[in-house]
Simulated scan of single mutants.
Amino acid sequence: MFMKWKFFDKIPVEGGVSYQDLAASVGAQGEIVSRMGQMLVSTGTLLQPKPGSVAHSRLSLRYKTGNSNGSAFAMLYDDFQPVFAKLPGFFGKYGPNLPVGKTNIPITFASGADGKLTPWEVFAQQGTEHIEQFGLAMQAMTGYLWPHTGAYDFTWVGKYAATNPNRTLIIDVGGSFGHSLRANLVKYPNIPPGRCAVEDREEMIPSITKAHANDPVMENVQKVAADFHKEQPVKGALIYFIRRCLHDYDDNDCVNILKILADSLPEDEPQARVLINEHIMTDPPDREVAAIDIIMMTWASLERTVQQLEKLADRAGLVVIKVHRAGGSSLGVLECKKASRS
C-alpha cells in the first residue's frame, strides 16, 4: 500500500516525514498508515528517525515510482502472488498436469478469466499504468541477473553500417522500452540509432515514444507497432534480436515466432542473423532460472535448455551457429542463420 499511495515518493531523500503528513496526502486514517509503517521499520525497509515519522533506508528508494526493481516487486505481488495462491484450485479443476493452451491456464484462472482471455488480454484490462509497471519490471536486475550486454559482441554491426548505408541494422523484437537495444547502442556507438527499431504491441508505442522523446540515444530509434505472432512489418534487416520473449510461449508459438523472423531475413545478406536471448536452463538448475520457470509454468510455458532452443530454431528453418554466454549470468544468446544459407 505504501507503493500504491506513492508514499516512497513523498518521503524526502534526506530527512523524514510524519505518518500524519503521509496519511493526510491521501486522505487516510493516521493509525492505518502508522501501523503499516511500523512493519516496514521493523524489517529495515524504512528507518524511524524519531517517534511517529519515517525516513528512507538504503533499501527503500527502489520502491519509488519508475524504479524497475520496485516495479518487479509490485509485479510479483500484484500479478503472480494471487496466481500461486490459486494453484490448488486450478489443479483441482483441470487436473494435476502441466498447463497447456492460452486461456485455460493458471494466470487466467486466478483472474476468473480462464477459457475467455489470454494473459496479455488480462493485463490489458488493468490499464496503461499496469502495463507500464510490467514493462519496467522486465528491466529489473539487469546489472547482475540478466544483463543487457556482455554475451554478444555487436562490434561488427558498426563496421557493417559504415559500408552498407541503407539496410536496417537491428530490430529489437518485442523490445518494450528498448532498454537492451539502448545499452548496446551506448556500448557500440558506431551503430547508428536511426537505423534500428524497437517493436512492441500497438498499445505500448505511445508510452515508448514518450519515454524516448528526451533520450539522445533513443529519440531517433524507430518505434514500430508489431505483433510477433503475425507478419513482420520490417523485412530485410541485418539482425532480428528477440530477448526474453520466447519463454512466455509454448513450443508451437515459439516456432511460429522464429519462422516469421527467419522468413524476414534478407536473401542477399549472408551475415544476417536472428539472435535469441533467453535464460538457459541447466542440470542442475540455476536457482533464479528455476524460480522463473515456475512463473512461466503459470503461462503454460517454460525456461528452456540449449538443446530445446536449438530444436525450436531447427523447426523454424534456422541453424544455431554459436551459443554466446556472459560470465556470471544465466542468460545466453543463440546466434542463428537461415538454414538454407551455406
Rank of each mutant, 00 (worst) to 15 (best):
residue 2 F to R: 01
residue 106 P to S: 04
residue 266 P to G: 07
residue 300 A to K: 06
residue 120 W to E: 02
residue 292 I to F: 15
residue 162 A to D: 12
residue 171 I to W: 07
residue 126 Q to M: 10
residue 332 G to I: 13
residue 27 G to Q: 05
residue 202 E to V: 14
residue 208 I to H: 05
residue 202 E to Q: 11
residue 109 F to R: 02
residue 119 P to E: 05
residue 207 S to F: 08
residue 199 E to N: 06
residue 295 I to E: 05
residue 237 A to D: 03
residue 114 D to L: 15
residue 103 T to L: 10
residue 227 D to G: 05
residue 283 D to G: 06
residue 23 A to W: 08
residue 308 Q to I: 04
residue 297 M to D: 02
residue 227 D to Y: 11
residue 295 I to V: 12
residue 192 P to K: 02
residue 7 F to N: 01
residue 234 V to Q: 04
residue 25 S to E: 08
residue 325 R to L: 14
residue 163 T to H: 09
residue 232 Q to Y: 14
residue 134 F to I: 15
residue 125 Q to V: 09
residue 210 K to E: 04
residue 137 A to D: 03
residue 306 V to P: 00
residue 296 M to Y: 07
residue 169 L to V: 05
residue 108 T to I: 15
residue 195 R to T: 02
residue 121 E to W: 11
residue 166 N to R: 12
residue 264 S to Q: 06
residue 21 D to V: 09
residue 202 E to H: 12
residue 131 I to A: 12
residue 80 F to G: 01
residue 339 A to E: 12
residue 279 H to G: 04
residue 335 E to R: 10
residue 238 L to V: 09
residue 125 Q to G: 07
residue 184 N to P: 08
residue 29 Q to P: 04
residue 342 S to C: 11
residue 183 A to M: 08
residue 117 L to S: 01
residue 148 H to F: 15
residue 130 H to G: 02
residue 20 Q to V: 09
residue 303 E to Y: 14
residue 254 C to Q: 09
residue 176 S to Q: 00
residue 142 T to M: 13
residue 174 G to Y: 09
residue 237 A to P: 03
residue 169 L to H: 01
residue 190 N to F: 08
residue 140 A to G: 03
residue 128 T to K: 11
residue 59 L to N: 02
